[in-house]
Amino acid sequence: MGAPPKLTAAQVADARSRFAAKQATHRQLAAEYQVSRPAMRHALNGTTWAHLTDPPPVTGTRPQPQALTADQVAHARRQVETDPASLAGLARTYGVNHSSLEHAVYGITWAHLTCPPPLPRPAPIQDANATAKLSPQIVAQLRRDYLAGDSITTLASQAKVADSTVRDAVHGITWRSVPDPPPVPVAAAGGAWVLSEDDEAKIARLRDQEKLTWAAIGARFNVTKGTALRAYRRATDGARPNALGDGRTAGTTGTDAREGR
């Protein structure tokens, strides 16, 4: 026999009538009759209960937002000019979505309405606690700090942006227009082979005498932190990579190489 339907004919008829009159959304009706939203939507549009023709199925699954009128747009412009925070409340009052009213107020739509004229769009608000876009000054400082040894993660935390945002700005994938300091080149491929013995000796001196971080040393030689570390170990141990480029010399084991011996 199967389970009995959760909705009755009377309930479907009532729901269609109220939905067509824009008195309730399908979500509100679903909650009221304790059925799922898909079940209510199907009953409204005739996917189910197609035999019920009075009232007929309703096209669409939700009441469409009302269209703005010239009087509403004019009133909203006057109101938002004195109180920008009132825009959201006005949108609810007019039964339109926020972006529709915002576009009308600032002249993206309703540009032909000139009394009152569209309002100028406000400048983006940035404060110390909000995630802000980078500026040329911030990008320049990020590059200086990166060259001084700060990690991408540290810089991203300080700037309150994603790691990838800082990485792209530091390496010039974005913000190529900032010339001073120039973008920091991305470490070259090839690992240890991009460094000479003289480079490795310099890396050892920078680490032992100047106490620079691996990030700062890597930035100076256009290599990664790991490559700088391995170069330091080779310089201090007197070992060079074998022909396979795996960091081991003849006579060393995998364990020796991993431990830097």
Rank of each mutant, 00 (worst) to 15 (best):
T82D: 06
T82L: 10
D83P: 00
D83L: 02
P84Q: 01
A85H: 14
S86A: 13
L87I: 10
A88H: 11
G89I: 01
L90D: 01
L90Y: 05
L90G: 07
L90F: 06
L90V: 09
A91M: 03
R92L: 03
R92H: 03
R92V: 08
R92E: 13
R92W: 00
T93A: 14
T93L: 14
T93I: 02
Y94F: 14
Y94T: 00
Y94W: 01
Y94K: 02
Y94N: 00
Y94M: 00
G95Y: 13
G95W: 07
V96C: 07
N97A: 00
H98M: 05
H98I: 02
S99N: 12
S99W: 07
S99G: 07
S100L: 08
S100V: 12
S100G: 10
L101H: 12
E102D: 15
E102N: 15
E102C: 13
H103C: 06
H103W: 10
H103R: 15
A104Y: 09
A104L: 09
A104F: 05
V105F: 03
V105C: 07
V105P: 01
V105Q: 07
V105L: 08
V105H: 09
Y106L: 03
Y106S: 04
Y106T: 05
Y106C: 06
G107K: 05
I108N: 10
I108T: 15
T109D: 10
T109G: 10
W110V: 08
W110E: 03
A111C: 01
H112V: 08
H112A: 14
L113V: 11
L113Y: 06
L113Q: 15
L113P: 02
T114L: 13
T114K: 15
T114F: 00
T114M: 09
C115S: 15
C115K: 15
C115V: 15
C115G: 13
P116L: 07
P116S: 11
P117F: 09
P118M: 02
P118D: 03
L119C: 08
L119Y: 10
L119H: 06
L119R: 11
L119E: 04
L119Q: 04
L119P: 07
P120L: 08
P120H: 12
P120G: 11
P120V: 09
R121S: 08
R121E: 13
R121V: 15
P122R: 12
P122A: 05
P122K: 13
A123T: 14
A123P: 08
A123V: 12
P124G: 05
P124C: 03
P124Q: 12
I125H: 14
I125P: 00
I125N: 11
I125M: 02
Q126I: 07
